[in-house]
Structure formats: structure tokens, C-alpha cells
């Protein structure tokens, strides 16, 4: 395994070849709760499904998929929050990879909140 110093050296060397992504204030954010409760309930599969659907639909420039810690909705994990600029945050719970893909299609692309998955 490389040391942290070696990793930093690789990163420095590669800097010119990569396009660093900076937080875009106009991007819609999908935040998946990745506390231990979320991870134990399937947050990994849900985050991967969101990322895959975002990539598949070619909306990686306008949607950012990220993670946060436990938000206190442990009984409804896996949980994800969708925040679009100028709009109220929507919290979805009891998610599955299939529901995540549906949210991408209906909410992120279609602009319609999926009411049945809201908590």
C-alpha cells in the first residue's frame, strides 16, 4: 500500500490531466445519508443507484450525488435528500436502488416530486 506522501505525489503529478469538480451552486444535490444506520440498511446500493442513473441519463453536470452522516431518520433508512436551487428540500426514505432510479427519472429529470417515497 502506498504511503500518504506517495499518494499526494501522484495527485500532484496528475493534476494537469484531470478536471477538478468544484461545487456548482446551480447543481441539484442528492445527499444520501451514510451514517452507520444508513449503511447497514442499504445506503451503499442506493447511492450507487443514484450515481449510475445520473451517469446513464447524462446529467452529471447538473446533479451532484454526495453523502452526509446520520440525519436522525434512522427508522426510515436508507434516506436521501434532494435539494434543487430555489426549491424546498425533499426527503425520501425507505429507499431501494429501484426507487432511487425512479426518483432520478421523475424528480431530477421530470421535475415532479415522487410523493409516495417522501417522509
Amino acid at each position: 500500500m502506498k504511503s500518504l506522501e506517495e499518494l499526494k505525489a501522484i495527485k500532484e503529478k496528475m493534476k494537469s490531466t484531470i478536471d477538478l469538480r468544484h461545487e456548482d451552486p446551480s447543481a441539484t444535490k442528492v445527499i444520501v445519508n451514510m451514517g452507520t444506520c444508513g449503511i447497514a440498511s442499504g445506503a451503499r446500493e442506493v447511492l450507487n443507484a443514484f450515481a449510475e442513473a445520473v451517469a446513464e441519463n447524462g446529467i452529471t453536470k447538473s446533479v451532484m450525488v454526495s453523502q452526509s452522516g446520520c440525519s436522525g431518520h434512522c427508522e426510515n433508512e436508507p434516506v436521501a435528500e434532494v435539494t434543487a436551487p430555489g426549491k424546498e428540500k425533499v426527503i425520501y426514505g425507505n429507499l431501494t436502488p429501484e426507487k432511487a432510479k425512479e426518483i432520478v427519472e421523475k424528480h431530477l429529470i421530470g421535475g415532479t416530486v415522487v410523493e409516495e417515497y417522501k417522509i
Binding site: M1, L7, I10, I18, L20, S66
Partner: peptide, 21 residues
């Protein structure tokens, strides 16, 4: 594989570097 993909998704494009062996 799922864990690695999840971590790669969180890395963004170069803002965090992950080395996995």
C-alpha cells in the same frame, strides 16, 4: 466492488484521491 464504486462516486473528479489495494 459495491463499496469501491460507492467510494469512487464520493471522490468526485479528483477532489479526493482514493487508493485501494
Amino acid at each position: 466492488s459495491g463499496t469501491i464504486m460507492c467510494l469512487l462516486n464520493l471522490c468526485g473528479q479528483g477532489d479526493v484521491m482514493l487508493d485501494f489495494s
